[in-house]
Design a protein around this nucleic acid. Structure first.
Lengths: 115, 115
DNA sequence: AGCATATTTAACATCCATGTTAAATACAAG
DNA sequence: CTTGTATTTAACATGGATGTTAAATATGCT
């Protein structure tokens, strides 16, 4: 099971329906019914997708009467972005610079067989 | 089933073992045996994790004699980063500005500024 | 050829994810 | 308090993900 937040967040993002929900929520808080409308999928299915997003911290819920609108929680997404930024220089450097970087690390100290 | 690249990439990243493998590969190309060493996991399991990373495009393989070293493929990770960057302004803005942004989108042309 | 090393595939077990439909719950209003 | 609307939970089916061990494959060496 996924106990670490990053795994939960990546897993939550690994589904097109959930990513579409997030895109929709980036335009504002929305009820489950409205969120479900564009999808050829039952309401309980959307409800469960929201639960996954909520467990990952990517979304929060509130209550107004019988509605439980979902709202984007961008800080969780920032956690994901921060992890990926570790690798940013790998694609932002020119290939020559990347190559040089890799070589400088490899020839630094050890044979690379352990942590 | 995950047919779209983004889903495959996120799914591949949703596992701590695979993220650890990527971290290791960020220090340079490495054989399967060396990659497996730090983990309390059988060699076939690591081999399958590599296959997942490779299918997602995050890693490529080559051959030297009986070794099939894995190498980081940062461009796939860039695809993921680009998707997330859609949401960057949600956490990089101040809360006031974020609030204003959300309101401006929801109410169309209303200026949405308050406080 | 025959053996050693590195890696993958096969066969299997188990658990998790995702979807469905039907019933249950939460709240508002008549 | 009964009804209507919104949402969740229950019960179930199914497929996919992840791990294991044993066998197969690929390559190099002597």
């Amino acid at each position: 099971m996924h106990t670490d937040p990053l795994s939960a967040q990546f897993a939550a993002l690994a589904d097109p329906t959930r990513r579409a929900i997030l895109a929709r929520l980036s335009e504002g808080e929305t009820s489950v019914n409205d969120l479900a409308a564009p999808f050829a999928m039952s309401l309980p299915a959307i409800s469960r997708h929201l639960k996954v997003l909520e467990s990952a911290g990517l979304v929060s819920r509130s209550r107004t009467a019988q509605w439980r609108p979902a709202k984007l929680e961008p800080l969780a997404m920032k956690g994901v972005a921060d992890w990926i930024d570790q690798y940013r220089h790998f694609w932002e450097s020119s290939f020559d610079r990347l190559d040089a970087y890799l070589k400088s690390i490899q020839s630094g100290s050890d044979d690379g067989s352990r942590h």
